[in-house]
Design a binder for these strands. Structure first.
Lengths: 254, 254
DNA sequence: TCAAGCGTTGCAAATAATGCAACGACCATT
DNA sequence: AATGGTCGTTGCATTATTTGCAACGCTTGA
């Protein structure tokens, strides 16, 4: 909509791939070097871009700070966190919290497993949307049309033999998930890792977030993990209650 | 340098304070509503801004993803992390890693204390620059002129009675730190919390990062914490060795 | 029913961004 | 030492891009 801003913002994902010098940026933007320079300077003034000692540019510090502040303003996260910690204390496994936003599902909180073997994931990282248990829950709640459109648009990478292979299978899975009110991922993303997930709902009943417990095969079998389902659902419901205002907010530790 | 981009980017910190509607954004930017709308739309297309259900805008998901990617490109962090974890296993306290960038010091990694009492801090959060032990180390290494200029420019908030009160005291402290090659913060930020920190140096000997161990009085006294200094320094040196390429990179776990 | 507030669009005016060409600094090669 | 190349930087004229305005449609509340 605004060409100048559009160009400037296109620099960010470009630099996310790694540091680049002026010429590279100009080339990949398809503009003159002088133009790229002025854009970079503006980004620099705002701290979004940093110029390292070898003169190349990379993403800057303010970006972290902004993401941080944005994160802290998400009240679901704030409400959910103590519950996630408690759940982690009870079962010992990795606990995740995720939301859907603009065709992506991303983790917004995580409490690490107490076992030495941990799975790789990072807060802020987009989730493998076609296989993750939390993603299924969040997408299953979208309006029919939107869900359908999104499913068609997605890629279906075969992470493992059990990954969701195509849109049709995915939509079917979503229907199941929608009906039963919980979801699993049994080795669909990484062969040896299983998850159980439950939805968190707002006052109007719509799914606003989803949480999951993940554990590798070497620690517990899929069956054992499934026995945690009632606990996960209870935790999710507790968060739902607090988020929608049904449960009185007793003592929220600031 | 570029007015349009400048205005667009000014929207981000504004939204970081909390969600805002079109009118508010336009007012605070000092531009017409239609202008603000077009800027917001561009930011939206890039995922930096999200429009929530009540039509108000807030910071978007891509911001997290970008910050995430930027983070992963910082190789100091990657190299240092296993060392930080090991140190935490040895002493049990909270371990921080911080860098200096553009007049700010910020945490880029953290391993939480194993004790129930934890200090509040977040990765990506700017550090209390006038008192934190890691900040002293990073600033102490700046060129004389820059250090002086920065010290004059800073605010000196009195977090506690032991906070650095003014530029003069700060510069003196930096001189000491520079000479001894390590730093402390004894209750200068929060009355009951102490830190010991050591510098991480690149191949050219310049300080590229700093790490610290922090613990509250209720767990260990300041004296006891200081006995950890040799261990902290050894850890920092190990990281320096690996970062500067002196130590062969044996088996970096991807 | 009417008024007020908000987001949205088309348009003409003018400001602000663009590409060019030229300069200086730095590095490596001859 | 001298030269050729690369890279970042600046001033300027051109032109495209952004801007503010006014008007419209919508929802909300009196």
């Amino acid at each position: 909509m605004s060409q100048t801003v559009d160009r400037a913002l296109s620099i960010l994902p470009l630099l996310a791939e790694g540091p680049a010098d002026l010429g590279q940026v100009a080339d990949r933007l398809g503009v003159h070097k002088s133009t790229a320079l002025r854009l970079l300077r503006t980004l620099h003034e705002h701290g979004l871009v940093y110029r390292q000692s070898d003169q190349r540019y990379r993403l800057g510090a303010r970006l972290f700070a902004l993401a941080q502040e944005a994160m802290e303003n998400l009240d679901i996260r704030e409400i959910a966190h103590p519950h996630l910690v408690r759940l982690n204390e009870q079962c010992g496994h990795t606990v995740h919290l995720a939301v859907y936003e603009e065709n992506e599902v991303l983790y917004i909180d995580k409490v690490d497993s107490r076992y030495p073997v941990r799975m790789y994931s990072r807060i802020g990282k987009p989730v493998a949307i076609t296989v993750a248990a939390v993603a299924k829950l969040l997408l299953a709640d979208l309006p029919e049309a939107e869900r359908r459109a999104l499913a068609e648009r997605l890629d279906y990478p075969l992470y493992t033999a059990r990954s969701t292979p195509h849109a049709e299978a995915f939509l079917k899975e979503l229907a199941t998930v929608r009906e039963q009110g919980w979801a699993t991922d049994l080795g669909g993303h990484e062969e040896s890792i299983n998850c159980v997930a439950a939805p968190i709902r707002g006052a109007d009943g719509r799914v606003v977030a989803a949480m999951s417990v993940s554990a590798p095969n070497v620690v517990v079998t899929a069956e054992e993990l499934l026995t945690l389902l009632p606990l996960v659902r209870r935790t999710a419901d507790a968060i739902s209650g607090e988020y929608s205002g049904r449960t009185p907010v007793k003592d929220r530790t600031a």
